[in-house]
Simulated assay, not measured.
Amino acid sequence: MRLYLLARNPTDSVTDGFLPAARRLGLDVTVLTDQPGAHRRRAPEPETLGCDVRDFRAVIGRISAHRRPDAVFTNSDHLQTQAALAADYFGLPAKSWRAAHATKDKAEMRRRLAAAGADPVRAAELPPGADPAALDVPYPCVVKPREGVASEDVVLAADPAELVRRVAEIRARRPGEALVVEEFLEGELYTLETLGDGRVRHLLGGFHTELSPPPHFVEERMSYVPAHPAPVTAQVLGQLDALGVGFGACHTEFTVSAGRARVVEVNYRAIGDQCDLLLARLLGIPLFAHILRTHLGEPLPADLGAHTDGRARLSYPCARTAGTLTAAPGPADLVVDGVELAYRPLRAVGERHGLHRTNRDFLGVARGIGTDQRRVDRVVADFLAAQRWEITP
């Protein structure tokens, strides 16, 4: 059976999660990507073909001229609609392209939720060149790219003057892109991870996310939450239903304040930044294989057999300045006080980077798994405190 996997830049989710799972399932994998060289260097085994994966017509043509597909899949934020359209063209199991589009386009997501009466958020779309000072929005507000990812150019504005300034800064980096300005959602930030086959939907728990200080929203630490309160989960699932989300993996971010759950964004894919690798290990299930099986048309089991007694934490040491990384710890796998701890560098010594205020500033990731949250938190914090990163301007 042949799996076409659409991708842009290489990610840990694909290289360390989906490709090994596909091998274990005995699938022949063809990677379609607009960055074939980078993928061949990172994972030389699968067949890799160049393709303008942002264009669903190019994807369909490349597949049609190659070999018959049994599944078309992507874990990329940027490519969900293209993969859904291509899979549907070949008569294969797929996410609804309408749902994929509605979750990727943040303005459309707000319109769809408002039309359904599913906890509407005051928001306005800002086309290129439009004057942000003319918007009727509450303050503080959040401005973000309409189709952005990973908190890139997502920033808080306290008043109209700051909104005008922030929009100008983003437009200088993203000329011609539409933006969204919406009310700031108060409360703690959480995620809900789901996996469905269009018939059943499994809840995989979620994470409590700790962010950098405003005005930016960099995810610095995440603690696993086995289950959110039932009323909170029901509110989030109701909003996903309004968007038509229910097939494959989905990573939903939401705030909770006084018991009210409000969706920040819906990423119609598995959670990234190595949280998915941790989740598979923590739950003790073949998570990546389950996701691929749904796209092959196989039903999910009624019970995934997931362990629910584990606790986990991820911490991301971040660069605070631009420059060249001149000293950093290497990878580590340890067991400390009963806690499994893994550290992986995300930036190589000698690399020079700007300061992005996003997950592109991550220097590494420390993952801790155990049975007691306080112990897991302590072990991860102690490990990171003993390490040293140096950045030379």
Rank of each mutant, 00 (worst) to 15 (best):
P214W: 09
P214I: 02
P214H: 03
P215G: 02
P215F: 11
H216P: 05
H216R: 15
H216K: 11
F217I: 10
F217N: 13
F217K: 14
F217M: 10
V218H: 15
V218S: 15
V218L: 15
E219D: 14
E220Q: 14
E220C: 13
R221Q: 14
R221D: 12
R221F: 03
M222A: 13
M222W: 08
S223H: 11
Y224K: 02
Y224F: 15
V225A: 08
V225R: 09
A227R: 14
H228L: 15
H228P: 01
P229Q: 11
A230L: 14
A230R: 14
A230Q: 13
A230S: 11
A230M: 04
P231K: 06
P231E: 11
P231A: 03
P231I: 02
V232D: 05
V232G: 07
T233H: 03
A234H: 05
V236I: 07
V236A: 03
V236E: 02
V236S: 01
L237P: 01
L237D: 01
G238L: 05
G238A: 06
G238M: 02
Q239G: 07
Q239E: 10
Q239F: 00
L240D: 05
L240T: 07
L240W: 00
D241Y: 02
A242Y: 07
A242W: 08
L243I: 03
G244M: 07
G244E: 06
V245I: 01
G246I: 08
G246Y: 00
G246D: 08
F247E: 05
G248V: 03
G248F: 01
G248T: 06
G248M: 00
G248C: 04
G248P: 06
A249F: 10
C250K: 02
C250V: 04
H251V: 04
T252D: 04
T252S: 12
T252F: 03
T252E: 08
E253R: 09
E253C: 10
E253W: 05
E253H: 08
E253F: 07
F254Y: 15
T255F: 08
T255P: 06
T255R: 15
T255D: 06
T255I: 07
T255E: 02
V256K: 09
S257D: 12
S257E: 13
A258G: 13
A258C: 13
A258S: 14
G259R: 11
A261N: 09
R262V: 15
V263L: 11
V263A: 04
V263N: 09
V263Y: 00
